[in-house]
Write a protein that binds this DNA or RNA. Structure first.
Lengths: 346, 346
DNA sequence: TTGTATGCGTTATCAT
DNA sequence: ATGATAACGCATACAA
């Protein structure tokens, strides 16, 4: 009955069991090379035997460095009457990003601290909190248009990687997708499908994604002989997509092709098209953007521009860990090429 | 230019600045009462001045206790060909739970470490990993039918709270909803709407939720004069809901009311009903379960049994923190009453 | 190659 | 009420 409620075994315990000094055990644990193969074996056996695991608190106390990271989700202030309970956590698109981040972290034996900030008070408290918890790296996903966090984190010396290019130029690592190229894929595809009266529902034009996707789409259409593409601005939500579709249908009743700047709005548009008796894809071909989970939950399923989001999340991890290892590195941005996923809506 | 890249200020620094000893500063920080009001004020000023925050690693090293917690998402092994990339992270229902957990944690200044385990190797490594990271509490959400984690965690002395009753009886804290009561709400509502030929799409009958919801629905219908309720078993996914609806429609073409054991399947059912020319709610009234985000993304929006999921997540936090403070407490389960949210589908 | 000794920032025990 | 001082578990500079 080994019911020793006592604390975990320490280096000392292993040392005693192996008949060596603490220092030697420490070397084995940390893979320092100056240790006799035979001894290393003995020690390793003792470690396994006893079930020793290093105490991270003690370690980071003495080394004063840490490779633990936080996954920070930053949202604009929630208004009380704003029942968009959503948040990033339950957004299927960011769910993919998070999965990418987690998969990339796992091989390193790392698990992120999950921090959601949705007001300025929390944002102000973030950097001290990171210091307190000994967190050296931040994977930042923000929905806040003018988020002060990227700048503040880098200034505080926190190794940071951002999902999507910051609205204001900040010397921070980030990953993003080539929005213009993705939009061009959609344009080419719609034209390949023989569509002649093509329109677009864009995202908010003050956001980089919203702006660039519309521009890219228009450029691609223009260079193929369609200089004018009607468009209405949406807000990246399903309801916004519905409203935009209604307006577009009123302005361009004869449209036969549609590029929507994200899947969520595209789903909304699909519903409105059906309500108006338009068949998809026969009457109107629809292309979305993101390839989030909603793309396959639509009927018909959505042809969409796929962002390699998991890869992007993994790259964020690489950037942060690499900067954690060498703080003097230059900031880096990595742009991923999107691909077209063809499903039933075209 | 205070560009001291040096590490954070320590107790010692504060002590020096305030002209007192480390011990006194420590007392102020920890709110120990034996300290002269005047001194306490002086010290507090120094703390604010310097911007001191306690080093948690050092603290937990000496106290050997910690109130940091992990949010563990446990899933059954993923098969390579199983492209249900979903996972709990991107599930809108669990997104609500997570939000509830985060909101309850925030007032305590706590942020959970996010740990996803989807294979036995990770599961085996979990308890040592928690020890290593100094994590004392676990909020566990599992999709694994026979998850060994609840038992293993409690045996390891980890303060644990589970979302939903474990399939096998384990002495562990958990929160759950009164599935039977919720199903009864649906039954009463459908009958109130004048439906006479009511059927159900259930969840997997080997799961507690699947089993209890069907039983509760049948009991409520039976006690109101409808002893036989046709039903087919689904698997809680949208595709499963579609298949189940097809079968049900083949068996009971004249049904005019339907209770579906979760919203995701209900959305699938809605699509199939439309494909078969059935109008909702005119021809068939549909009630879902969960009130997850998909409920409002359906057209028509879904009448559904709402689980107070955020409250349930918050209660998980309460259970864990309370057990963290007093390890001798008995395990507790808290059952929440569901409510009916009436929308367009009935 | 291995062992000894010191200190990381904190709490807690002991004097005072 | 306040101040020394000893741990906590570990990495590492230095000695051997």
């Amino acid at each position: 009955m080994r019911d020793e409620r006592s604390s975990s075994p320490t280096l000392e315990d292993v040392a005693e069991a192996a008949g060596v000094s603490r220092a030697t055990v420490s070397r084995v644990v940390n893979g320092v090379r100056n240790v006799a193969p035979q001894l290393r074996e003995t020690v390793q056996r003792a470690i396994d035997e006893i079930g020793y695991v290093p105490n991270l608190a003690a370690r980071s106390l003495v080394t004063n460095r840490t490779n633990s990271v936080a996954l920070v989700l930053s949202e604009p202030e929630k208004h009380v009457d704003d029942e968009s309970s959503g948040s990033i956590v339950s957004d299927p698109f960011f769910g993919r990003v998070i999965n990418g981040v987690l998969s990339a972290l796992r091989p390193h034996g790392l698990h992120p601290v999950l921090i959601v900030v949705d007001n300025d008070e929390d944002r102000d408290a973030l950097v001290p909190r990171l210091r307190q918890d000994g967190i050296g790296g931040v994977l930042l996903i923000t929905l806040h248009e003018h988020d002060p966090l990227p700048l503040r984190l880098t200034q505080a010396g926190v190794a940071t990687a951002l999902f999507a290019r910051p609205t204001h130029p900040v010397p921070v690592n980030y990953v993003d997708v080539a929005h213009r190229d993705g939009a061009a894929l959609a344009a080419v595809h719609l034209l390949d499908r023989g569509r002649q009266r093509v329109a677009s529902i864009s995202g908010p034009l003050h956001s980089a994604a919203g702006h660039d996707r519309l521009e890219g789409f228009r450029d691609a259409m223009a260079s193929r002989g369609f200089p004018f593409v009607p468009s209405v601005e949406g807000n990246f939500t399903q309801a916004g997509g519905e409203q935009a579709m209604e307006r577009l249908l009123a302005e361009q009743p004869d449209l036969d092709g549609l590029f929507v700047a994200n899947d969520l709005m595209a789903r909304g548009a699909l519903g409105v098209l059906r309500d108006h008796g338009r068949r998809v894809p026969d009457d109107v071909a629809v292309v979305g953007f993101d390839d989030s989970a909603v793309a396959v939950s639509c009927r018909p399923q959505l042809t969409t521009v796929r962002q390699p989001v998991e890869d992007m999340g993994a790259e964020m991890v690489r950037l942060v860990l690499s900067h954690l290892a060498d703080r003097t590195q230059r900031v880096t941005s990595v742009i991923f090429e999107p691909t077209l996923v063809i499903r039933g809506s075209t």
